[in-house]
Amino acid sequence: MNAAAWISLLSAVVVAATPLLLAATGELVCERAGLLNLGVEGMMAVGAVSGFITAYHTGSAYLGLLAGIGAGAACGILFAWLTVQWVADQVATGLALTIFGHGLSGFLGHSYAGDTITALAPLAIPGLASIPWLGAIFFDHSLPVYLALFFVFAIYWFLYRSRAGLTLRSVGEDPAVAHSLGLPVNPTRHAAAAFGGAMAGFAGAFLSTAYTPMWAEGMVAGQGWIAIGLVVFATWRPLRLLGGAWLFAGVGVGQLFSQAAGLSINTYLLSALPYLAVLLALVLISRDPLRIRLNTPASLGKPFRAET
């Protein structure tokens, strides 16, 4: 491969990592608050369909993004309402949300199948975009690509350098103690779930308005699940999301490039590669149970309700 091919490959990886990063950043915050939301896939689907429909009717992909964020946040709030307020099982609620989101996106998107919209335009960052190699790889993309990177660092700062982040971590580690200290456990969890939903919706809307600006059912195709895997892979540390997202996106993009290059491996078998990569990464990262236990938010998935 020549330099141009490498640049276009790496640039494609950065773009393909965007939905994973967005969704995983949201899920990481949610899990850090102690909520295991397995509904990312469904929330992305809802974000994708509402983003697409809004963009289709308004002609503005940006409004589409906003609609996707809003719809995702609504799903996140629904999740929080059920699991925090009504103490429903988190695993079941997340799965229900996934199935619901799938169904809703299919139902709403039914009459838009195959329709196209004008994709989100790339915004080259003046100056930076003309750096050789790096400019084309990192600084010549649409807005969400930059935002995804921004959010990773912003969340890092939030978790480790702000009081609200400290509160969120405390709520995720031990909600009973946090409550007894007078910290707002339930509001924090509601906010975290809403943020997680908004980010998943953003990720979905990015898929439908920028990545493949044409409506096709099932376009999320497991990326929500990969995002959840990514959070485990990153052992709940925001900066490590970057490496994982690029790795998983790299496998996916590499598989497409190898097809284009006429590699003689069956396309269908190749399409399993990203999922196998996640599986392999999970196995490698989980091998040391102590490391997982030390990093997992201690109250993850466990219901909490204060006495009154």
Partner: peptide
């Protein structure tokens, strides 16, 4: 002429409704 996804949507709503209703089992 409704979407076939309606079935899946129904399932999702049903499970969400059940999880909400189940609060009454313990509370």
């Amino acid at each position: 002429g409704l979407s076939a996804a309606l079935g899946e949507l129904l399932q999702g709503i049903l499970l969400l409704a059940l999880l909400a209703a189940n609060v009454l089992v313990h509370y």
